[in-house]
Amino acid sequence: MSTARAKPGGLWNGLSLSHKRVVWAWTFLAVPILFYSVIRFWPTLQAIGLSFTNWNLMRPASFVGLENYTRLVQDPLFWQVFRNTFLYLIIGTPISLLISFAIAYYLDRVRFMHGFIRALYFLPFLTTAAAMAWVWRWFYQPVPIGVINGFLTWAGLPQQPFLRSTTQALPAILAPAIWAGLGFQVIIFIAGLRAIPTSYYEAARIDGVSEFAILRRITLPLLKPTLVFLIVFSSIGFLRIFDQVYNINFNDPGGPLNTTKPLVMMIYQTAFKSFDMGYAAAQTVVLFAILLAVSLIQLRVLKDR
């Protein structure tokens, strides 16, 4: 339609071009916003409401105030799980970033079969976490079927309990989780490395700066946006770790003795094994707060740049 011939009194025609743009933008945004409100935000609010009740599926929910939260604070399992979750985070994130950076740094310089090697690193990322966990579970078995213990006994070393140990189980679960995420991080790091203008390196080399100094003074500072993205991304990943843990110790998930149980699994078990929905909702609210805090802190770091 032509604007010139339209009635001057129409509401739409009364709008300026920039206003029209805003209306159009909101019209298109309305769909995802509505979707997110119904699918994400509304249930989130409901979960917060639920955390103040004692709903257990079978009986109608009744308000219990902060009882679920006080119970949580007094629950030794919660603190154990809390500790485990942060262990996944503070061991997993730095180690995975260190390894993936080292791989990306050197892979970036390799020309021979570069694409093939990169694909090999990326392959585990494509594998289903559940399938991987089941395979690794068998790797960790005692003899005669466990590959790692088979090697140890062949070398004359004592067997290791791995998943059947309260100290070794968490690192043993973390190893495949790190390995699985490596490919993705390597790709992002390589992209970040390629984005640094080569002229900086050329200038530094002409000035005779050492390789280590180049890494410290040029590469790492210019890589900061990539680094922050990966830190936030992998932190959230490790804070939410579930499928690896659940599948690698299928018969006693989070065991032995809860030493590998992350917060997400405690929520799952409280809600869908014990049907203690109110208590599970309270745990979810705590997890939400943790994720929010961690993300905000990391965004703050990003802002400082």
Partner: peptide, 20 residues
Amino acid sequence: VDEAAQRQTAIDMVNRVLLQ
């Protein structure tokens, strides 16, 4: 009253003896 949770107490009881 909660088979999964009660089973867990038995699993943990034996694990404390065998692992710790």
